[in-house]
Nucleic acid binder design. Structure first.
Lengths: 200, 200
DNA sequence: CATCAATATGAACCTAGGTTCAGTATAGAC
DNA sequence: GTCTATACTGAACCTAGGTTCATATTGATG
């Protein structure tokens, strides 16, 4: 909500030092990698080591582990929002909404596999996204996709964004690829008007 | 698997003392309640207190916390197996297999809500059921239910026990009742031959 | 009832991992 | 080049929670 191009009146707050900016980036990158690879249980020590930085520096940038994880999660949510908006763009350019929606669902599930730890982290630590903007962006885009699919008569009229979230949140990300594929095949028809006929 | 009515040849192993038996029961009961109510993170201290016993006694009966949790999980699995077999019994008595199977699915999901912590415990601690017998019982019964439903033409021919497990494991047990109900409504038709038509 | 092995007790122990902070280095301003 | 606020370092601290073990009880046996 911070509008720029306007000198802050109180608290001059000089610009952060160059090395601080550099380190912050390294920390976020390392945290993302470590949490993705080894789960949210990775120690702060390990994240610090991966970032080539001391533990204390982690705490200079993020007052608590939860905050660090929240930052990583925020990046994840932003990526999902981007994906949803891109898919919506394709639909507006003529693509079928159902296809885009289910493909989007598939991509998110697959991404959640790599980022499974991130998701788990969010639940485990109760990390609150400091900024719901990206979450809202994703919601809006998905809603538009659903609407488009319903207008085209492909998506069941009572499907909502909540339904998509509900399915996302229950994706078996800790199962092998075959199981995930099977799950998608079982669940996807729940969204369409044509359901799942015998022999499908 | 221990057959009784037959004196153990080696290792006479006198019968356990009466109070030991009593305490073991109290511990299992208390552990079930505590884990169900407060999650698998409950301290051994709290479980011990709830059982009216000292921590050391917990460790006399269960060498490790994981073992205690495993015992609780085993009880849970046994209950599910009983449920599945009862449902199968009703089918053999003339009930429709699809109905029994979906009702069973619903019951397990609802039970998982109360026992959510138990499920979580199993994953978190990697608790291995010491005895797969009950798990097998459940699997056999569910397989029979599926088969019956397929013979009746109601359940999709390619549905397997794994599918049921897959759906069980992805049930949104941490969501409010309405969301759970919605989830069931979305997922159930994935099993049937008639899918989900518009207006359903 | 005497005896003892099984059992119970619970304070102390140990480890892991998040967090702190006094000391040191350095970017940026003058 | 000097100076200082900002940033970095990493050993030490602290807490939580699982586990142990010396000591006290108690059920069973003869």
């Amino acid at each position: 909500m911070q509008v720029e191009g306007q000198a802050p009146p109180v608290t001059p707050a000089r610009a952060p030092r160059a090395d601080a900016v550099r380190n912050r980036k390294k920390i976020l990158a390392a945290a993302g990698e470590q949490i993705t690879a080894h789960g949210p249980e990775v120690g702060m020590d390990e994240i610090a080591a991966a970032a080539g930085v001391a533990v204390g520096t982690l705490y200079r940038h993020f007052p608590t582990k939860t905050d660090l994880v929240a930052a990583v999660v925020a990046a994840y949510v932003a990526r999902v929002a981007d994906d949803a908006e891109t898919a919506l763009g394709r639909v507006e350019a003529g693509a079928r909404a159902v296809d885009e929606l289910t493909a989007f669902l598939g991509r998110v599930v697959e991404a959640s596999v790599t980022d499974r730890a991130v998701k788990a982290a969010a639940q485990t630590l109760g990390a609150e996204p400091g900024d719901r903007a990206d979450e809202d962006r994703a919601g809006v885009a998905v809603a538009a996709l659903i609407r488009a699919g319903q207008d085209a008569g492909d998506i069941h009229p009572d499907v909502t964004v909540s339904d998509i979230y509900l399915l996302f949140s229950t994706a078996p990300t800790d199962q092998p690829p075959a199981a995930r594929a099977r799950w998608l095949a079982l669940v996807t028809p729940a969204l369409t008007t044509w359901g799942r006929q015998a022999g499908n």
